[in-house]
Design a protein around this nucleic acid. Structure first.
Lengths: 104, 104
DNA sequence: ACTCTATTTCGATGTTTAGCTAAATACAAA
DNA sequence: TTTGTATTTAGCTAAACATCGAAATAGAGT
């Protein structure tokens, strides 16, 4: 959990996650959205990977990064619960308050 | 937002927030819950104060710390929204899915 | 095999962090 | 005013971090 929050404490890394939210993307493509040097960005990738927030996969001569939403969810959920809060993700609606299936 | 996440990236600081969740507490009282030296803890307080997650107030010869839930909420809410998530706090139930007031 | 492109590793540098002990400060109480 | 308690500041070390340019690596295509 500390690793996740540490990863989230940098704007560049949060932006990377946001970009990956739309779908997997190569390191180079990601780099196009930032002004920092590629080695710097590569280090950011490493931090995100260390926190298991992203996974990498080689494809040809480029590296495709993919977000791990479940890890992000779990960390935020865990923290929110400690404060009596409730986190609803689109994929995981809370059983107690179902949106669909209105009672007839 | 970065400051908040940075503050949350340390277990001791998260624990401090949890303790303060139950109500304001003096620095000494808080220190009783940790094994780290008091100056170290004081530095943690400074980080939390910098992120505006806590406020301090002198009372007699002790300092009372108080959590600022709104700041925590705002940061987490802002982040959750960027990911299409929804954060429900007890004080701020979402209008779209009211728990109380079932339709007759 | 060579070359081009993409990405990471390496090495250097400056900044930040967590932790400590010892000293300073602030206030209360005697 | 002196004493005692609570908290912070000062000064330090060791470890971690951010950033860069340059070099190394991996694969694709010729």
């Amino acid at each position: 959990m500390s690793l996740v929050f540490k990863a989230l404490s940098d704007p560049t890394r949060r932006r990377v996650l946001e970009l990956l939210k739309s779908g997997p993307m190569s390191a180079g493509e990601l780099a196009g959205h930032f002004t920092v040097a590629k080695p710097t960005l590569s280090a950011h990738f490493a931090v995100l990977r260390e926190a298991r927030l992203i996974t990498s996969e080689k494809s040809g001569n480029s590296v495709i990064y993919q977000i791990q939403m479940s890890v992000l969810e779990e960390a935020l959920l865990g923290f929110a619960q400690a404060f009596g809060w409730q986190l609803n993700t689109p994929e995981t609606p809370t059983p107690e308050t179902p949106i669909k299936a209105p009672r007839p």
